[in-house]
Computed example of a mutant assay.
Amino acid sequence: MSGIPYIDADTLTSLLSWRAAGDALEAALRAGLDPAASRPRSSVATSAGELLLMPAESADAVGVKLLSLAPANPFAGLPRIQGLYVLFDAATLTPRLLIEGSALTSLRTPAVSALAVRYLAAPDARVVAVFGTGPQALAHVRAVAAIRPITSVRVVSRRPSGADGLCAALQDQGLTARPGGVETVRDADIVLCATTSPVPVFDGDLLADHACVVAIGSHRPGVRELDERVFARAARVVAEDRDTALREAGDVVMAVAGGALVASDLIDLAEMLCAPAVPGISVFKSVGMGWQDLVVAEAARAAWLTGVPA
């Protein structure tokens, strides 16, 4: 075990760009990867929080991500989410690679969202409203800015200090950003929701008629960031996998229960790649799935073995 290579956060970032990670995910879907075959995550409660186990398998590799979620950690100056990813050889189940788990999540989640945005958002989308100020909020703005000509970012947060901090981080990376209120969604081409809120973070009636909305904050059926009006107004709603969304995505579960969304109208991510563009509001709801970690981990290993960043 001591001889297994380990990819830390900085190394992972140097190996794979947002675009390369998204390209790997798209290639896997186009090659026939079936998200519906992905094994569901499992959760184990602990005294400090919970452990999440996310396994997946491909023709060449088996992988598993183990994450810990400790809600009280931020108050002690520690990350709320920590973890480790283990990549095994598919034939022998020999461990081949270890990857820092939170870094992998911070890469693959925005990469999946950016893949959806690539197909759902207007090519000239320039204004982003982002709800949340954590690592995923920062990573999502960066990933979207890699594929769209973003000129303005409005950060919405209940904590002014958090909004100021994210704005500073985005400005350091050359993006124009400033704090904003909920009403900023009126002018947003792309709305990113990356919060821990258990209730909707804005009124769906505020959305511009062309907005692309991405929600990634929860994988629990009783929690949602988007209200029913978002779904009632949407011309297209995309999820990684229809059945998984109907089981885990509270935004989708509650919209269906409230009559704002018909379950059969949900579009799988793979279907989106071949579907024609349609005008109107689009929604991508992500819960995160093990196949995404595996695809990105395999791409990272390939880049690491060749020494050529992707």
Score class of each variant (00 low, 15 high):
72 A>G: 12
248 E>H: 05
295 V>T: 14
217 G>D: 02
3 G>T: 14
121 A>C: 02
306 T>F: 03
208 A>L: 10
286 S>C: 07
16 L>D: 01
41 R>A: 14
115 L>D: 01
175 L>T: 03
250 G>S: 13
124 D>K: 06
71 P>S: 03
76 A>V: 01
298 E>K: 05
4 I>K: 08
21 A>W: 00
26 E>C: 02
32 G>R: 04
165 G>A: 15
213 V>I: 13
270 A>S: 15
141 V>H: 04
89 D>T: 08
133 T>E: 13
167 C>N: 03
195 T>Q: 00
149 P>W: 01
252 V>M: 05
27 A>K: 10
283 V>D: 01
6 Y>P: 07
133 T>A: 12
213 V>L: 04
166 L>N: 11
85 Y>R: 02
188 A>Q: 08
304 W>H: 14
190 I>E: 01
149 P>Q: 02
206 L>K: 13
233 R>S: 07
289 M>S: 08
174 G>K: 10
167 C>H: 08
40 P>G: 00
65 K>Y: 12
299 A>Q: 06
306 T>A: 14
56 A>Y: 06
50 E>V: 04
8 D>E: 05
256 V>N: 13
99 I>K: 04
216 I>F: 01
69 L>I: 10
125 A>T: 05
66 L>P: 10
250 G>Y: 07
73 N>M: 08
257 A>D: 13
18 W>C: 00
95 P>S: 07
57 E>H: 13
261 L>R: 09
211 A>M: 03
190 I>L: 13
184 T>R: 03
298 E>I: 08
300 A>F: 07
271 E>C: 04
12 L>I: 09
114 A>S: 15
58 S>N: 05
223 V>F: 12
200 P>T: 02
180 G>H: 12
77 G>K: 04
39 R>N: 02
268 D>L: 00
186 R>K: 11
172 D>N: 13
170 L>F: 11
245 A>L: 09
8 D>W: 00
156 V>K: 09
231 F>L: 12
93 L>F: 07
221 P>S: 01
93 L>V: 12
88 F>P: 10
48 A>D: 09
199 V>C: 03
214 V>T: 15
110 P>D: 10
89 D>C: 13
119 Y>H: 15
227 D>A: 09
36 A>H: 14
274 C>R: 12
272 M>E: 15
251 D>S: 07
272 M>C: 07
177 A>Q: 02
97 L>K: 04
303 A>Y: 01
178 R>S: 15
246 L>G: 08
84 L>F: 11
29 L>W: 07
203 D>E: 15
266 L>I: 01
284 F>V: 00
165 G>K: 14
10 D>V: 06
149 P>C: 01
165 G>L: 08
60 D>A: 15
299 A>L: 09
